[in-house]
Amino acid sequence: MTGQATHSTLSRTVLLSVRGLAKSFGGVQAVRGVDFEVGAGELLALIGPNGAGKSTCFNMINGQIRPDQGSIRLGNPDHSKELVGLTPRKVWRLGVGRTFQIAAVFGSMSVIENVQMALLSHARELHEFWRPARAQHRAQALELLDAVGLADQATLPVATLAYGQVKAVELAVALANQPRLLLMDEPTAGMAPAERVALMALTRRLVTERGTSVLFTEHSMDVVFAFADRVVVLARGEVIAQGSVTAVRQDPRVREAYFGSGRLT
């Protein structure tokens, strides 16, 4: 079983390669020597107890935090780009999108303006001072909203939407620049079980269509088990296990450090 999983990962092209990543905050080692890879088109779950270093890893890949050591390379090994040292903006321009644990959208704007904003930025048209923004990239924005099922809500203020819909808006925004890799920080936090499944099913459909890889953190094990191609488990800043869902699920160290009996989640 594990052999099969290894085989399937090796056969994929590597999209993101994280090597020897380390970071400490004021003497506390939050992440120590983390290695993992995300394959092209893969949905990889990064799980572990609170404070295990998941968010720190995310923020280092995203460019928000600069690692003390290690490398993060994007693209297949022949011509990959080093992400360490780049700002979040540059990382985004290289094709790494992101969603946040608490959906981050532009609260004063309409749904479609949120998406138009991302499209304007992608087209490098932010410093246009004259032509009204509302007419620009409208068709493309509507297409994206249609894909996440929000075409009918396009002109509503985003502040009036239900939380599940806000999450979908964020997804549309994150997909606007056709990213190669999407980082999702606890995508289903604060959602009801059915909403979780719907959001992840939608995510999977969209990324498969677009050939986008996903790296996500998650505490809800039903989501991880149902949607992850592979799992990386962090504890105390180190990778303690990685592999297929089944393999990780049965790993005794993971049970002890993270799952417990698994009865309640």
């Binding site: 644990q101 936090a189 094990m221 799952f259 009865r263 309640l264």
Partner: peptide, 14 residues
Amino acid sequence: PSEGVAPLIVEQMA
């Protein structure tokens, strides 16, 4: 109490 915490902690909370 169980939001956003690891499964093991959820059990301890229960």
